[in-house]
Amino acid sequence: GLPEGWEMRFTVDGIPYFVDHNRRTTTYIDPRTG
């Protein structure tokens, strides 16, 4: 799974992105792969 505090969501286009609730940021880069 994802690191603690992270969540995976999808855009309206079906593109996955990642929400970091710890820092309240979003990124398209998987936190597991950097």
Results as ranks from 00 to 15, higher is better:
G1A: 15
G1F: 09
G1K: 14
G1T: 11
L2Y: 03
L2H: 02
P3G: 05
P3E: 04
P3Q: 03
P3T: 03
P3V: 03
P3L: 04
E4Q: 12
E4W: 11
E4L: 13
E4K: 10
G5R: 04
G5S: 05
G5L: 07
W6L: 02
W6Q: 02
W6S: 03
W6I: 06
E7D: 05
E7S: 11
E7H: 05
M8V: 09
M8P: 01
M8E: 08
M8N: 02
R9T: 04
R9V: 08
R9G: 08
R9D: 07
R9K: 11
F10N: 04
F10T: 09
T11M: 02
V12L: 12
V12K: 14
V12T: 14
V12F: 14
V12H: 14
V12D: 14
D13H: 13
D13K: 12
D13G: 13
D13L: 10
G14K: 08
G14V: 00
G14N: 09
G14H: 08
I15K: 09
I15A: 08
I15H: 09
I15N: 06
P16G: 05
Y17Q: 06
Y17P: 01
Y17M: 07
Y17I: 10
F18G: 01
F18M: 00
F18P: 00
F18I: 01
F18K: 00
F18L: 01
V19G: 01
V19R: 05
V19D: 01
V19A: 03
V19S: 03
D20M: 02
D20N: 05
H21N: 09
H21A: 07
H21G: 04
H21D: 09
N22G: 08
N22H: 12
R23P: 04
R23H: 15
R24E: 15
R24S: 14
T25P: 04
T25V: 15
T25M: 12
T26W: 15
T26F: 15
T26V: 14
T27W: 06
T27H: 08
T27K: 04
Y28P: 08
Y28G: 05
Y28R: 07
Y28D: 08
Y28L: 11
I29Y: 09
I29G: 06
I29A: 09
I29K: 10
I29R: 12
I29S: 08
D30L: 00
D30Y: 00
P31E: 03
P31I: 03
R32P: 06
R32Q: 04
R32I: 07
R32T: 07
T33V: 13
T33L: 14
T33Q: 11
T33F: 11
T33K: 11
T33N: 14
G34R: 07
G34N: 12
G34F: 13
G34E: 11
